[in-house]
Design a protein around this nucleic acid. Structure first.
Length: 581
RNA sequence: GCCCCGGUAGCUCAGCGGAUAGAGCAGCUGCCUUCUAAGCAGCGGGUCGCAGGUUCGAUUCCUGCCCGGGGCGCCA
């Protein structure tokens, strides 16, 4: 409809310009839904863009445009020149009412891209997210990234992409060694062979560490992982194996067991959130299959690395970046950067048309180095995209909780999901735009009083469409087929408003997908629910089920359209759409 | 010092270069008690951090500054 109007406006503009002997291209004008409904259904700014070029007043041009547009082939019932030179247009109300049939016909597919033509394949995109190393349970910060990445993946799927969700992790290296040592220390403490460091020491390892307490050695590493889950793993090891592991090094069995237990925990958490990864990519495979050495050799052959201070450096300054970076330490061990470069090159070798990395704000500085190096190895710079998100700050009892992977003040996704459920968790995490800090009020989230919760508000709006259907069945009224009712019976202003809002859904989805900003969908759903719930509330004015069978059918059609949009939107956010609550 | 992200109503936040900047919550006033419920109408509340610039038009784009958060390692 918008497109049809645009075509008409373009024709009118061309005629207008031609009459003035102007054959320059048309300006890049907009046809948009005005903020205020007094300004009509659509508003066009073309006249203002042409004012200077034509040397005429914008309102004058808008007037001529209005005359030339006429009724745009029956589309327009009223038009007016307004403000500085807008052309505002009101469509025939049947233009809106008829759209309900389209929505019902598309059903759950409304708002999603059409299937590719037979024989054509979908473009392939890889979305890499979470990618937490198995050193502990997922934090709420990880949780935000998990939900964000999954929603972006769903939006891309809805936009016609073939999506691979990928999790990149490293279960080797220093982090994991420290993890093993931490578990071992707790194991020895449990067996009475070592002492735990004091709370004071744990709070400030540099200043308050003691080598022994009460005659027992403190073996807990100074930068060790302090969470209770470490103790749990150590205790269960002690229960299973007794003192048999006393001489086992920390990066032996302790590390293996800790990693297995923690990874299982992470996968369980993701599963609770409804998130499934297609590929878990282990960084170590890049070493074993030679991809890392190959990438390094190719960088060297391209003259992009050099040796200095016993280390190997990536010549990033030659790629326009501000400093060079070490890729192989003087110990001979690569930094995290080198495998990351090899990994990103592999992504393209695996045939993805687009590669998206979702990263927290603390990692964004690294991306340009990875991208430049991978690009020099044949990856396509323009098809490597970074989607950044800010942190989650947790507020509890009016105070901000400082989160640290190693400290005990750590709040996990599981804890929050235990209290609020996956649906509410996802809604809270996706509701706000990703480049701002997300202030997660734990008290509010934990509050069992669900009255004010936007997730429930939207879900309930959906459930009510089923409630009405149940009522209709009781009254032996069948739900209408997509074209099986007269939509022109929907004449009330609030009904037309609702249809107008529903019709916007495909645009919202497209915009959210393109900008990688799922929060637009969440806001939109709140708006739909914010029209639908009050509509149902006012049963005096517009009861769906009434004596007037034709009117009831039309309103049931509206209810179905609302249902499709809410269900589809909730699905894009990975939130359930219950039939009753 | 350099880089990234924010700064919009009391609070949490939306806002696609457009017109009189919005929502939810909180507050106040009146109604409603439901096709299961979170409802409706209204009121109050704003130098869109500050200053320039571009533009017919800037909360939106650009520059500088202020405030807040984060990052600047041969950690990941």
């Amino acid at each position: 409809m918008k497109e049809a109007l645009r075509t008409r406006v373009e024709d009118a503009l061309r005629a207008l310009l031609a009459a003035a002997g102007d054959h320059e291209p048309l300006p890049d004008f907009a046809i948009e839904v005005p903020r205020q409904k007094e300004h009509g259904d659509f508003s066009c700014n073309a006249a203002m863009l042409l004012a200077k070029r034509r040397g005429r007043k914008p309102r004058e041009i808008a007037g001529e445009l209005m005359d030339r547009l006429g009724d745009a082939g029956g589309l327009v019932t009223r038009a007016e020149v307004a403000g500085p030179g807008f052309l505002n247009v009101v469509l025939a109300s049947t233009g809106w009412q008829d759209r309900i049939h389209e929505i019902l016909e598309a059903g759950p597919r409304f708002g999603r891209a059409a299937d590719p033509a037979p024989g054509a394949s979908r473009p392939r995109v890889q979305v890499e997210f979470v990618s937490a190393n198995p050193t502990g349970p997922l934090s709420t910060g990880h949780g935000r990234q998990a939900v964000l990445g999954d929603c972006i993946a769903k939006l891309l799927e809805a936009s016609g992409w073939d999506v691979t969700r990928e999790y990149y992790f490293n279960d080797g290296g220093r982090q994991m060694r420290v993890l093993g040592e931490s578990v071992k220390a707790r194991y020895l403490e449990h067996l009475g062979r070592a002492a735990a460091p004091s709370a004071e020491a744990l709070a400030d390892p540099e200043k308050a560490w003691q080598d022994s307490v009460d005659g027992l050695p403190v073996v807990f590493p100074k930068d060790g992982y302090q969470g209770d889950y470490i103790v749990d793993i150590a205790v269960s090891l002690a229960e299973q194996e007794g003192a048999g592991l006393v001489d086992e090094p920390g990066d032996g069995r302790f590390r293996e067991v800790a990693q297995a237990v923690i990874f299982e925990n992470i996968e369980g958490t993701l599963k609770r959130l409804g998130i499934h990864f297609d590929v878990y990519f282990n960084e170590r495979s890049l070493y074993t299959d030679g991809k890392l050495d190959e990438a390094l050799a190719d960088l060297r052959a391209a003259g992009l690395v050099y040796d200095a201070d016993g280390a190997v450096w990536f010549k990033a300054t030659a790629c326009g970046l501000d400093r060079d970076r070490v890729v192989v330490k003087s110990t001979g061990e690569p930094t995290y950067l080198m495998p990351d470069i090899a990994y990103h090159r592999e992504k393209f070798r695996r045939g993805f048309d687009l590669v998206i990395d979702i990263q927290g704000a603390d990692h964004i500085e690294q991306f340009p180095f990875v991208r430049e190096a991978a690009a020099r190895l044949g990856a396509d710079r323009d098809r490597m995209e970074l989607v950044m998100h800010q942190f989650v700050t947790i507020t509890s009892g009016g105070e901000r909780v400082k989160q640290s992977t190693r400290k005990a003040t750590f709040i996990t996704v599981d804890e929050v999901v235990d209290d609020v459920g996956a649906d509410v968790f996802r809604f809270f995490m996706i509701e706000r735009k990703r480049d701002g800090h997300l202030d997660f009020d734990l008290d509010l989230a934990k509050d069992k009083n669900w009255r004010k919760n936007p997730a429930y508000y939207v879900q309930y709006a959906h459930a009510r469409t089923h409630g009405i259907e149940r009522k209709a069945l009781e009254a032996n009224v069948a739900m209408p087929a997509p074209h099986g009712f007269d939509a022109t019976r929907l004449v009330l202003e609030e009904e037309i408003e609702l249809v107008k809002k529903l019709v916007l859904f495909p645009e919202i989805v497209a915009r959210a997908a393109e900008s990688r900003e799922p929060h637009h969908v969440a806001y939109y759903l709140r708006e739909v629910a914010g029209l639908w719930n009050p509509y149902l509330q006012d049963g005096e004015r517009h009861r769906v089920l009434s004596e007037d069978a034709a009117l009831s059918a039309a309103r049931l059609g509206l209810a179905l359209a609302v249902r499709h949009v809410l269900a589809s939107g909730l699905a894009l956010l990975g939130i359930s759409a219950p039939e009753r609550m």
